[in-house]
Design a protein around this nucleic acid. Sequence first.
DNA 1: ACAAAAGTGTTAAGCGTACACCCATGT
DNA 2: ACATGGGTGTACGCTTAACACTTTTGT
Lengths: 258, 258
Amino acid sequence: MCLYLCPSLEDGTMKTQKINTEILYPHVSVDCVLLSIVDDKLCVLLAELTRENDVKGFKLPGSLIYETEDLDQAASRILKESTGLTRIPLKQFKSFGDPARTTNKDDVHWLENASKLKVGRIVTVAYLALCKVRKRQNTNEKYNTAHWMPVDELPRLLFDHEHIIKAAVQEIRRWVDREPKIVFDYLPAKFTATELRRTYELIYNKKFDVRNFHKKMNSFGYIVATDEMEEGVPHRSARFYSFDKVKYKKIYAKLSNN
Amino acid sequence: MCLYLCPSLEDGTMKTQKINTEILYPHVSVDCVLLSIVDDKLCVLLAELTRENDVKGFKLPGSLIYETEDLDQAASRILKESTGLTRIPLKQFKSFGDPARTTNKDDVHWLENASKLKVGRIVTVAYLALCKVRKRQNTNEKYNTAHWMPVDELPRLLFDHEHIIKAAVQEIRRWVDREPKIVFDYLPAKFTATELRRTYELIYNKKFDVRNFHKKMNSFGYIVATDEMEEGVPHRSARFYSFDKVKYKKIYAKLSNN
DNA sequence: ACAAAAGTGTTAAGCGTACACCCATGT
DNA sequence: ACATGGGTGTACGCTTAACACTTTTGT
């Protein structure tokens, strides 16, 4: 029943935090699984947590939400804080609310120490994005400890964050199936067939036949060949292709009409 | 950043509610979009809200979560409270946390009146299920006002509940695509080809060719013909089929290996 | 006999998969 | 010349979609 509702938090009885003159809503957090390809591996951005110069583990970039903030806004904020990126499509994919998710004694102890707050129950809403990696992205000092780490060689992670990452990797495949556009938001404006294929291979964690992949690319209808060719490579140079937004939208207009 | 954490709620500073000797966590709710087929229409279970014998609108069955309760548990509880059903697969499909979602003045006024509580921000986690409709299901007095209403003829709904239902109807199609099993959890143990086809048609909101549908049924491999036939119908009697769980699991074992 | 719904088969088109060789470029 | 990766076509099997008539049963 929904008849028992949230008492106002504005009466000051909650230990709310003032940050940037905004009030946190200290019951719900957003965690972002930011994926990218680094050194030919599918990687996730992780923040390193240390205590007394001792690395204790890693966590996903995340934050409690603000009182006046939508979940999607919180996710965008975290994306920007942790990578400097904006306008990257973010997808909410699952919420995690097991009361036991924040009860690992080591994790609680470590986090309470770092945060100077008592750690209670938190329901977290997980988001996913495929990020262009930029140099000099870690301008925020909180994230000078952020690292892109391969999703299949994960370090010790806070609470259920490993579980969240595994779910995200499953989810991104379904997302790309439905909205291939996100791959082109990730890729540079001009890309070679091999770059595109390799991106798909790393996302799906399987090889695609080169000839069949070219055929598929052509069948899409929204990937257009340019006149430009790779230069300075010690082998036959590859053609650059680009993504035609208008054609894409026409093709996918039907699909979303349901 | 996740460093600002939830203060313990056990210090009594929150206006928590004691119900069934458990403490509510008054910041997160679970709402269930319970779908079923009634009178050959895809319907959703809605609770009617009245004030002074005046029908003000409808809402999804939902509830704040308990302190010690997982989100999935809360959804199962709501399912049971509102329909009496247990063991029906429930799928978490999306969370809704727009701060403005609970700010419609009419809705707030009406709900505050009904609940005798100040309505603040609530993040809700939405679940979906396909329910067998049972007679005499509304044993819980809270739900003597529950009705199955067609999803394409929705009445005035509380807050963003219409939006949640629309999202659920999209989602159930994807769910059936991935896990056809839920259709057989919905259907009786013995069902005719037409019943199955009609179920698909109502879920997908489109017609399926009869012959092609039979062919597809057979290709599944887990739908087995029985010797039983319909009786007492004023036309050729239909064969009953049944769902073979073991065969199904063998077939879908591969798919989930990813 | 008729009304009403059940059940059945073929064809064509599109899509996925498997597979091997020549091409262009820099060293 | 050679090493390196780029680029191309065909054939087969599977899946999907379109389409019309006969069968069974109760009245």
